[in-house]
């Protein structure tokens, strides 16, 4: 039936919360399904044009069966389009959310092994889950926001966390992953080795916390 594949695409994406939960890995881009939906839609389009050319305007108003089949095909084609775009839009939302969650660290987001904070062997990392077009979108979005936030950058970092208002200036952190030597804002150098604990200004290490090198105690 027309539209079955599209239905499959959207119901899967609707039921699964994966795309919208930034902590979980993004499901892989359903390339083959999308291609077959596009193909189906193209075939529908061709058959509509062919029928219209073959019969012309006059017979269309008389032949009810033809009219009916054309309407169905037309609606199916439009529905396919809508489903495809809904799927893409849903993923775009998830991608943006992940970008913000990672504090705008594009390189970190795309680096292998860090699939949105959860590192497990079977989960694909974000880069392989994205289609090339989505990757382009993510890069474009990245530069878009960087442009926007550069207006504010001398005073505040727009991409820092907004989960809850800061209540303390200092924060106790434990190093969960080796981060090497990091030069902080004040010019101090700190060698972050796994297992060590520090008490530092939140603003300075916020990014490292977001990226999972440090953990709040």
């Amino acid at each position: 039936m027309y539209g079955d594949l599209a239905l499959q695409l959207v119901t899967a994406s609707h039921r699964s919360t994966l795309a919208n939960t930034a902590q979980l890995p993004l499901p892989k881009y359903a390339l083959s399904l999308i291609l077959s939906i596009c193909l189906e839609t193209r075939q529908l389009g061709n058959s509509i044009t062919a029928a219209a050319e073959q019969h012309g305007q006059a017979s269309l108003s008389q032949d009810r069966g033809l009219l009916c089949s054309l309407t169905v095909q037309h609606l199916a084609a439009r529905r396919n389009k809508r489903c495809l775009l809904a799927y893409l839009q849903n993923r775009v939302g998830g991608i943006k959310e992940r970008w913000w969650d990672a504090g705008g660290g594009l390189a970190y987001l795309l680096s292998p092994g860090t699939s949105s904070g959860v590192t497990s062997e079977d989960a694909p990392d974000l880069r392989s889950a994205l289609s090339p077009q989505e990757l382009d979108f993510l890069r474009g979005y990245n530069s878009l926001i960087l442009d926007y936030k550069s207006d504010f950058l001398d005073v505040l970092d727009l991409t820092a966390s907004i989960d809850r208002p800061p209540s303390e200036l200092m924060v106790d952190v434990r190093v969960v992953k080796d981060a090497g030597e990091v030069i902080l804002e004040g010019g101090e150098r700190i060698d972050f080795r796994k297992g060590e604990r520090f008490r530092l200004a939140r603003g300075q290490v916020e990014r490292l916390i977001v990226q999972g090198f440090l953990e709040e105690v």
Binding site: T41, L85, D136
Partner: peptide, 13 residues
């Protein structure tokens, strides 16, 4: 728009 176009719209009628 570009994203949508490159991903699916260009392959539709």
């Amino acid at each position: 728009h570009t994203h949508f176009q490159h991903s699916v719209l260009d392959s539709l009628p």
